[in-house]
Every structure is written in structure tokens, then in C-alpha cells.
Design a protein around this nucleic acid. Structure first.
Lengths: 203, 203, 203, 203
DNA sequence: AATGAATGAGGATTCATTCAT
DNA sequence: TATGAATGAATCCTCATTCAT
């Protein structure tokens, strides 16, 4: 097995260990010692792959966030009809799918606020998602002329808070809150929708 | 000066010091040592007034949250016309006023990661606010028959996230986001409003 | 109620509280705070009656040791026949009686070694007991001419260790060990006994 | 010099420092800070070798207790004639030799108060010694049929107290007390001896 | 590249005692 | 005499990080 591969494996093991700790005991439990022990590597070796502790947490989030993006892209691509309603529903449900798969991410991001690095990364990611969705909706003609990217950002952030609320006590998400949250976001964006955005167009 | 007064003063000084630390360097900077130094008291004296470190942070939040409630109550009482629109606007603006006055609270609650005690306290507070507002709106006849307290909770939480977004980079709150956020919350709740809630009634 | 009496009462309450702590949680649990709380007096008031923490523990022991002396004196006085055997038996049983009554004393003295003050006090007490018993036995003609006070001291100390062993795990004293211990001490001293000491004389 | 060796050296230095503290100022003086300073290592480094403070003390005792066992074994092996008298004398003198060499042990065990870990360890050790000696004496035919291990335990414990008394004020042990103590233990055990145990048999 | 060992810096908390009132 | 309040000094321990090998 090539050297390179072994490294990648180890990084994965480290991230898995960190994720398990976050999931089971919260972010403060993610000490270098605990991660190293969980991953079966010496503490000092963490520093071969990560500059410091924060970078581990960041990498953990990045990994999950990448999955998020893929899931959203895939689910949007599969929509037969495009409208504000279907896009919002598909996007938010895509998030939920990943939250289900990546419970450490739920703890790290939706629950206990995290360190600045993660905070910044996730906020930036929300912004990028908002921008992407805005472009997508604009190009598909779902929005009216006065809609701006700010509307998209607000929608994403507010959706994020819906998730926070829904996952607060239930690691699988409170379905009633999720349903109502989807309505909320959809209702908000439909006030900025074009006729097509309201009625839907074939993809 | 009576003994009692000196104690209250010291507690205030301690909370102020803790608040300043939160504000300038985040919650992790609120070490007993740093607070004590900031307040000009020995570390051991902190334990005269607080059982442990967490209680200091909690007291800090409680102080600000109390102000929040008063402000909301006062501003709602001053409304000439009651409607979903005026109540949402008044409530959210009341929050903003307090955020302006209590910047440590902005950091502690709207930004960065908090500890569990604060998290729980603020979530409970949001819930209580939601319940109070729901009762208020129900009694004033602003809501339709199908509205539940869940709608109010979602509105409060989502409003909270609007604040988070608005105060994220600007300690005084991004006005554009706030305006749009008020629309968002109002739009959401109006879908659960009675005719009176939409048109307004004299207070 | 005269002032004086109230003071005595308080001192008793303090000693009782300290004793209860020793008994239930060991000597390290005897903090000024815990004693004060247990006695229902302010911490600062302890210093009205005791110079420092050690003095409290010492007073506690002194109180129990006084009881010890009375019990021994009373039980020896009640003996119809005096011999090494009866004196040893009566004395050791008198100790056991007090240990049964004063369980804090068991913890303080027989178990976990205590602070220097107590250590010294109890050793001195053992010495005095030894001297008293030696004088008593000498005057009663129970000992041979070569016996010295050192023999008595060794007997007392060794008896003490028997108690330690017997009360180590059982707060009421392991009877088998006590019986054997009495034999041991008696056997030792009988090797320094006069004919009268072996056979006994009417009291 | 290999890494390994340096570690062992450091552990020794730490134990020596702890021993010196016990010897000079009692067990309560064995704080992590004081030990570290004495050993010339940072406090944090103590935790490389010991899980916590108690483990340092325990290691200290274990080191000395090991020596005890070796000394007893060696001295018993060197006896030309085996009898209760020679075995008791040899064993007790072996103890004394080690107490002379390891004065911290004298303080830790024979004097002042120890912590529970040490207490338990030493009590268990006494029990083991008693069992070993009992087996040895039984196999050598020194005891009568009714002797039990309880007799051995009592003898060991009582011998222990003799040492305590002898070393109480004099770190080298009061010779008169030691001599008398040997008589005492021997006298006690000879009452459970076989004819061989009284007269002696060639080793 | 990998790591065992080492550590400086700092964490929260407790305690016995004092002193102004 | 009595005490609420105050505190200096110390406690054990943990952590992220570095560095020699």
C-alpha cells in the first residue's frame, strides 16, 4: 500500500474519532489526547496532518459540508418540476438527509455553538449556498426582478435556524418543526417569486 | 456605606468584567482569573457571590434577559394599534434596543459558542417569550383558530436567527437585514392571522 | 440561661458536628465550613472557642479520652478479684465499651492516622494509662520485682493495636480478634507477674 | 544514554523527592508542587509517570515494601536452626534493617497519618506476610495443630505496633522496646508452637 | 515521516483564617 | 461577644504543543 494512501486512511480515522467524540460528548471532549486515542495514533502524529486542534474540527466540518453540497446538487438535479416550492423542499430535505447521516455535524453545527473557525466556515458556506441557489433560481426564472441575494441569504439562515430548532433535542429532527419550517421559508421566498416560480416549470 | 450595598456593587463589577471579556474576547476568555482581575477582586471572592464559573455567565445573561422582557412589555404597551404587523415590529425592535445597550449579550448569545447553561436558559427564555406573545395575540384576537404556540415559537426562533445574522459582523445590527427579517416574520405569522390581526385593532 | 452555659452548649454542638463528620466521612471532611454548618454556627464563631482547626479535633479526642479513663476506673473498681487476667480483661473491655459509644473516636484514633496533635495526645494518654496501671498493679502486688513501666507501656500499645485490628473493618469490633488480643496481652504480662498476679487476690 | 533509562532515573528522582518530603515534613507536605520542585521536574511531568498524587505515594511505599519482602526472605533463608524464636527474631530484625535504610517508610507507615491507598496497601501486605509466615511455619512443623492464620496476623500486626512504638521518636528505633517486643511476639506464638517450634530444628 | 517524552501555561476550586463591624 | 465578608495561598490536574530522536 502506497505511503500516500496510508496517510489518507489515518486522516479519515482521526476525523472519525473526532466526530465520534463530538457526537458522544460535545466539542469540549475533542482534546488532542482523546482524538489520538480514539484514532489509535500517537498524539504527536496529529500534527503531521493538522496544524492545530482547530484544524481538525474544521476538517471534520468541511468533510460533512462537502457531502451537503453533493446531496443538494443531486436532489435538485432530480426534480421534474422547478418552482420555489419544489426547490425549497428539495434543498431543505437534502440538508436533513445529511444531518441524519452525519450526527457529529448536528452537534457541531446545529447544537452547541462552536469555535470561531467553524463558525466562520459554516457562515461562509451558508453564504455560498445562498449565492448558488440564487443564481440557480434566477437563471431558471423563478424569481421576480427585485429579488436579491440578500433574500436568499436570509432564507438559508432562517432555514438553518429551523434545523437548529428541529434537531435541538432530537438527533433525528422534529418532523413537525421541519414541515412548518419548510412552509415558512417557502412562504417567504414566494413573496419574491415570479409567476413561473409560483406555478413551476419543467426542469 | 452599608455592607449590603458594597456587595451589590461588587457583584455588578464582576458581571461587568465578565461582560467586557465576553464582548472583547469571547466566552472562553471568561476565566475566573480574568474576571477577578477585571473586577479588581481576588479570585477567591468570586466564590462569595457565585457557586462556580458557570453561574457568573448565567447571571450575566439573566441580567440582560430581564431587561429584554421589560423592554418588550413596555413597547407593546405603548402601541396605539394592535396587529400582527405592529406587534412583530414592536417586539423585534425592542430586542434590537436591548442588543444595542447590552453588547456583551450580543456576543454571548447571538454570536460564538455558549455553554450549556446559557444555551438552555436562552432557549427556555425564547420559549417563554413565544408563549407570552401567543397568549397576548390570542387574547387580542389577532390569530386564526388554527394557530398554535408552535407557530409562535418558530417565529421567535427565526427572529432570533435574523438578529444573529444582522449582528454577526456589525455590533449595531445590519439595518437592511433587520428590515427584511421583520417582513419575514410578519409574513409568516400573517398566514396564521385573523382578519383583525391583518387589519389591526385599537389597543 | 446564663451566657456561660450557652457557650458550653455551642462547644458541645461543634464537637458533635466534628465527630459526626469524622465518623461519616473521615478526618479530611472536618473542614471549618462543614463543622460550622453542622453545628449551626458561623464559621467565624469557631474561632471564639478554638484557636484553630486542629484544636477542634483535639478537643474532640480529649472528650472521648476522658470517658475512657472514667470507664476504666469504674470497671477496675468493680472487680471482686484482682489478677493480671482480671485487670487486663476489665481494662480492655472498658476500652471496647467506649469505642462502641464513641464511634468518631474509632475513626479518629483507631483508623486513619490523624494529625500530629491528636497523635501526640493519644500517645501521651497511652503512656499515662500505662503508668497508672503499672502503679495500680505494683501497689496491688500483682507484678514481680523486675517488671518496669516499659512492660506496661508495651502492653497498652500492643492492646491498642489489637483494637485497631479489631475495629479496622467492623465499627463494633471483631470479637475473635478481641478475645485473642486479650489472651496475648495477658500472656505477655503474666510473664512479669508475681504469684498473686497469677492467682489473684480479693480486691 | 537511552531514553528508557532517563525515564527510570526521573521516576527514581521523583520518588526520592517524595520520600524526602515525607521524611522531613510528613505526608501532607507531599504536594505535587513540592515533589516536582524537589525532583527538579515540572509539575506536569509528574503526570507522565503517575496517574495522580496518590499513585506517587503508593509507588513510594511499594518500592520499600518490596525491599522488606526480599530482606525477610533472605534472612530467613540464612537461619541455621528454625524455631519460633529464631524465625520471629530474624523476621523482626529484617524489618528493622529496612526501616533503617528507608526512613521515609518509617514516617509514611509507622508514623503519622497516611492516605487510604497506603493504609490499604500496607494492611494487605501485613496480611500477606502473615499468611506466608504461617505457611512457612506450618510446613516446617513449628506450629501445633490448633494454630490458625489469625494467630499469625495478630503477631504481625502486634509486631508492627512494636515497631511503631520503637520508631516513634527515634528514627533508628528504641532498642529496649525492640528487644522486649521480640519477646512479646515470640511469647505469644510459642503458646501455639509444636515441640519442634519450641526446641528448634535444623533448617 | 513518525513519535515518546516533556512542559509552560493555565484551569477551577477550596481552605483556614482574619477583621471590620 | 459574635459574625458576614473577604482573601492569600495553595490544591490537583489538563491541555495543546514542541522537539529530539
Amino acid at each position: 500500500m502506497p505511503q500516500q494512501l496510508r496517510s489518507i486512511e489515518r486522516v479519515e480515522r482521526i476525523l472519525d474519532a473526532a466526530g465520534a467524540l463530538v457526537h458522544s460528548a460535545g466539542i469540549d471532549a475533542v482534546t488532542t489526547r482523546a482524538v489520538a486515542e480514539g484514532a489509535g495514533v500517537p498524539v504527536a502524529s496529529l500534527y503531521q496532518y493538522f496544524a492545530d486542534r482547530d484544524e481538525i474540527l474544521l476538517a471534520l466540518v468541511e468533510r460533512d459540508v462537502g457531502e451537503m453540497d453533493s446531496q443538494v446538487a443531486a436532489d435538485l438535479a432530480g426534480l421534474p418540476v422547478l418552482s420555489i416550492a419544489t426547490v425549497v423542499e428539495a434543498t431543505m430535505r437534502a440538508f436533513v438527509k445529511v444531518y441524519h447521516r452525519r450526527q457529529a455535524f448536528v452537534v457541531l453545527w446545529l447544537r452547541g455553538r462552536t469555535n470561531t473557525a467553524i463558525q466562520d466556515f459554516c457562515r461562509a458556506h451558508n453564504k455560498r449556498i445562498a449565492a448558488d441557489l440564487f443564481t440557480f433560481a434566477r437563471e431558471t426564472g423563478l424569481l421576480d426582478d427585485e429579488a436579491t441575494v440578500l433574500n436568499a441569504e436570509l432564507a438559508v439562515e432562517v432555514g438553518d435556524r429551523v434545523f437548529q430548532l428541529a434537531f435541538e433535542r432530537d438527533l433525528h429532527g422534529d418532523e413537525a418543526i421541519l414541515v412548518e419550517g419548510v412552509h415558512l421559508v417557502r412562504g417567504y421566498l414566494e413573496r419574491h417569486a415570479s409567476a413561473a416560480g409560483l406555478e413551476g416549470v419543467p426542469a
